[in-house]
Design a protein around this nucleic acid. Structure first.
Lengths: 337, 337
DNA sequence: CTGAAAGCGCTTACAG
DNA sequence: CTGAAAGCGCTTACAG
């Protein structure tokens, strides 16, 4: 059994109050008493319980990061999705910087969630789903939180870092057009989040403005590169007109398509341009390498942590609630000789 | 003020005990009472305090990961050090899988550490320093922990996942020799950890066995690729005999050297072989790409979490306490035509 | 300078 | 079926 403050008090022949005072440098305790208590505490291996302490002000100095799309992914490894790993790492560091710890947690609404999942001072929820129960729960219980991207069904209802899905989609689409694309198709994921929605709407709008017939398909995020063949079949299987450029939202879909079209003898970038709305590591390394948007997850994480800390401390968030602007990493897949 | 169980009890006209029973499905409470209490709890936005609950069994379902070398790094980003990010991400997921959350924390011995830093059920400490105060503190206070790699001054004294620094060093050295290296130099970091130590000892032993004169240098991990020029000067600046192969422990040092020797007109791999003892992303992408050891941080993390969970639950760890074996990713820097 | 008491927000025997 | 009481391990007025 781990020793408590009582054990130390007993061993030192003083009251728990005095032990507390002595060990925390509060109140007034005679120097010798302090030293004796410190010695005894060390001897018995006493460590104050952070949980008991936390009970006083109900703050642990703990932030939680809930990466919603993690549920749709089979892996968290960098081979899979660069974005989340960079985000989680950067968020952890940003939290350390501000005197907090950050934990990555699964859905805290699950009945079998560990106690820790509900012990955070504030929450960061990235890419909430439509009518996301996590946001509902946090909101109902008055737990401070900030989301990255809005709940598609409830935009503007909570503290959220506005993403720039629409303008980022246009950035890629315009680049594809500038690179020579005339029939640009869109390949989205199937998660019901703002990113998929907004990108699709931006695409439809862009097509309408250009007088182009939209050509879009959706495949599950979870299948990653595995959708390559199906996507290739979808776009190039039937006779008739085929796209000469594809905008894949996820880097993994782009990587899969990139490989699948190569197998069909379609040359990238000569016959087909490919660009992705977020980067996976393999996009930089593939032959040809694939143009991707860099969403700067580190910057997003830093800002989210900043806001979360303010909320945790009961202060209003300062500055504009938005993510940094994305930049385009132009690679071989959209660079014609 | 956030509502407590008392508020709910008062509003429902019952005792806190009954609220507790009703909300947790314990004891025997009339169905209607349960429903009324649930309704009222929802109305007032009641959320049970995880901290108060945790006080009962002093367990939060929380694991802490302390990445010691983080102190010597200027960045945690993947451009910097692939290894730790992959480790942290994989550890987080492994923890989720077992019903725990995992937080990345800074040195928990710091007096200004947040409460959370000492609230974990068990700790994972990677690459402890010599006489690491973190290990001392955890050990003194009987807090369960497992280290990845041993404290160089106290090997075998605590639960630790044995690393294979020695055999991994030989793997790289033998590969360099097989690839044509005859005068193999070593470039280590300056942190006082087992990895630097063991690798150096293995190198000296290997040189002795081959009758080669050792040629070794150490540069700070924190400087990363920045050491390239200084390392190139160190190995190739003076007249006389120069190495024809360099084993850099860190991927970032290798990347820096790779670039610096190119600037001097030294061709890799024709005139100089380079290999690294751990991978950074740029090693895969550089021209030429650089051969690295893949330490499989995901496997290490999974095993560390497994052990940490057992210790947190007061059970003895099962199976051999060691990390998975590393594999060599052979790339252009050690492949002569 | 020291300590008894109350309290942080829960849970859990135990008694009614 | 319900509740008063004790307790988890601390801290903090407050009284001596």
């Amino acid at each position: 059994m781990r020793p408590t403050i009582k054990d130390v008090a007993k061993a030192a022949g003083v009251s728990p109050t005095t032990v507390s005072h002595a060990l925390n440098g509060k109140g007034v305790v005679r120097r010798e008493t302090v030293e004796r208590i410190e010695r005894i505490a060390a001897e018995v291996g006493y460590r104050p319980s952070a949980i008991a302490r936390g009970l006083q002000n109900s703050r642990l100095g703990l932030l939680a990061l809930v990466i919603r799309p993690l549920h749709s992914l089979d892996t968290f490894l960098p081979e899979g999705v660069d974005y989340f790993l960079r985000m989680a790492g950067a968020a952890s560091l940003a939290a350390l910087d501000r005197g907090y710890s950050l934990m990555l947690i699964d859905d805290p609404t699950r009945p079998d969630a560990p106690l820790s999942a509900t012990a955070a001072d504030a929450y960061i929820v990235t890419e909430p789903f439509e009518n996301d129960p996590v946001l509902s729960m946090l909101s109902e219980r008055n737990i401070p939180f900030v989301s990255v991207g809005s709940d598609p069904a409830r935009p503007g209802q909570f503290f959220e870092l506005a993403t720039r899905d629409w303008e980022e989609a246009l950035l890629v689409l315009d680049h594809l057009a500038a690179a020579g694309g005339t029939r640009v198709a869109l390949l989205t994921g199937t998660d019901q989040n703002a990113w998929n929605r907004e990108s699709q709407d931006a695409y439809l709008d862009w097509c309408a403005r250009r007088g182009q017939t939209p050509d879009l398909a959706a495949f599950p995020e979870v299948e990653g590169e595995g959708v390559g063949e199906a996507a290739a079949e979808r776009f190039f299987g039937a006779a008739g007109t085929h796209p000469d450029a594809v905008f894949c939202l996820t880097g993994r879909h782009a990587a899969g398509l990139n490989a699948a079209v190569a197998a069909r003898g379609i040359r990238v970038p000569e016959e087909l341009l490919i660009a992705a709305g977020s980067g996976a590591i393999q996009n930089r390394m593939s032959k040809p390498s694939v143009t991707t948007l860099d969403l700067h997850p580190e910057g997003i994480a830093a800002r989210a942590v900043e806001v979360a800390v303010l909320l945790a401390e009961g202060r209003p968030p300062e500055g504009p609630l938005e993510v940094p602007t994305a930049t385009l990493d132009i690679r071989e897949s959209t660079t014609r000789a």
